[in-house]
Design a protein around this nucleic acid. Structure first.
Lengths: 249, 249
DNA sequence: ACGTGTGAAGAGCTTCACAGCC
DNA sequence: GGCTGTGAAGCTCTTCACACGT
């Protein structure tokens, strides 16, 4: 793991875009294509529902129905969709096919995304075989590991390649996204190599905070963290009086 | 992500309920032991760092160092920790062992959490073997599946049991949390049974919105969603000019 | 009548900046 | 000098409520 705090540069995950007042010139044009992060993540949920509706032949859908199937409020749905433009019809709803196309376009799913998974342990192998990626437009093009026992074996329709050749594999497969399914101890060094190889989009499952340059997009999924958050709420329900020495109490 | 930040957030966990205008008597006392959700998810990150420091013998840590290793700002760390009480020493920092204990306590990790994983597909098996759960105080006590080919086999140190006996298994193993690693199609019905069996904390990996009673805590992790969010940002960096075309005009 | 689109109000979170204590 | 604790300011996101189009 990273030696004591201070093994280098401390960069923030996904640049803050700060500058409260960048150029006061053209705020609207820039802002117009900046979707709020919360909206982006909900758009993926709407898209999932829309695609389900599409394949069952439904033609129109209301914000109420979309809200229901995404687990949010309908006002929220309408606000989110309004960032994309006025694609609904008042008194009627949204046309499923059209809206689906618009969301996919806004999310950049028209592009071809080629994903390399680094780490062929339990999780990496599970991800490599997960059909959900392919079906949603993400091509898993490589699976890498450092373990020589795994290199060369086949997982799903992929052959595991040596992480020593990471740069070469990424270039050859023209991967433009990387999923890190690695132990915490090696995650940062592999991450650095991935960034140096020109990858700007990384999804990490390693239970450690990775530091990356500001221009790199890093998202983290940590299953133990999720369970701990559940534990917090569960404990609160179970034992409503947990007044330790809290301020204000 | 919690994602980073962001994170696609959970859905209406615990909802708003009592804040608006409960009893105007004692608002502060109740509010005092309600940690902001964003704080809760960062506390898990601090705890991870603290435990690492603990095992390497470091005794004190500053908010700056904690911030660095969690990927947030130091003011944020201090604010978060201040919700727990004043456990730091000005001019010095925080005592690692003490702070670690306080956070674990606040998160409810003193409790014993017994997790049942439903679904022994690729992901379920990977989760069952994931050492990160055990090491952080979560005991995986059962692994269930509907596939008769899998029932009875051993994964890690667990024997797969039949999901038909779900209620019985949950009771017998005294599980108090459930992880759903199921296909979307069956997730809701299994979820309903899990809730009926008295489980109030559920972590779902199924790519579908589950509906649960308000008193149930449901968190979702969706890997395809994470990739789509990355795609959005990557596309923005690659192609700064996003076209728009108005619908009818 | 129905359901979208949207300013405005409200709630929550982050960042700042500095007082207070070691 | 160094670092915590915290009001206040600023920002983002959510919710409300209703005008508007069909």
């Amino acid at each position: 793991m990273c030696s004591p705090p201070g093994c280098g540069h401390g960069n923030r995950i996904w640049s803050v875009t700060l500058s409260p007042s960048q150029t006061p010139d053209e705020p609207a044009a820039e802002a117009a294509r900046q979707l709020p992060p919360a909206t982006v993540s909900r758009l993926t949920l709407y898209l999932r529902t829309l695609n389900a509706l599409l394949s069952e032949g439904t033609e129109r859908v209301s914000s109420e129905a979309l809200a229901e199937s995404a687990g949010v409020g309908s006002a929220n749905v309408r606000k989110d969709l309004s960032y994309l433009g006025s694609y609904g019809t008042r008194g009627v709803g949204y046309e499923v096919a059209h809206l689906s196309r618009k969301i996919a376009q806004a999310l950049g799913l028209t592009h071809e995304w080629r994903v390399a998974i680094v780490g062929a342990g339990n999780l990496g192998r599970a991800l490599a075989r997960y059909a959900g990626f392919e079906s949603r437009g993400f091509d898993v093009v490589a699976l890498l590991d450092a373990d020589q026992m795994l290199v060369g074996t086949e997982i799903g329709w992929l052959r595991v390649t040596d992480v020593a050749d990471l740069e070469h594999t990424l270039e050859k497969t023209r991967a433009n996204m990387v999923v890190l399914a690695l132990p915490a101890a090696v995650a940062q060094s592999v991450c650095d190599r991935v960034v140096d190889a020109g990858i700007h989009s990384i999804l990490s499952f390693a239970p450690v905070a990775l530091s990356v340059p500001a221009f790199v997009n890093l998202r983290k999924v940590d299953m133990a963290t999720e369970l701990q958050i559940l534990a917090y709420h569960a404990q609160r329900l179970a034992d409503p009086r947990l007044d330790e020495d809290r301020p204000g109490a």
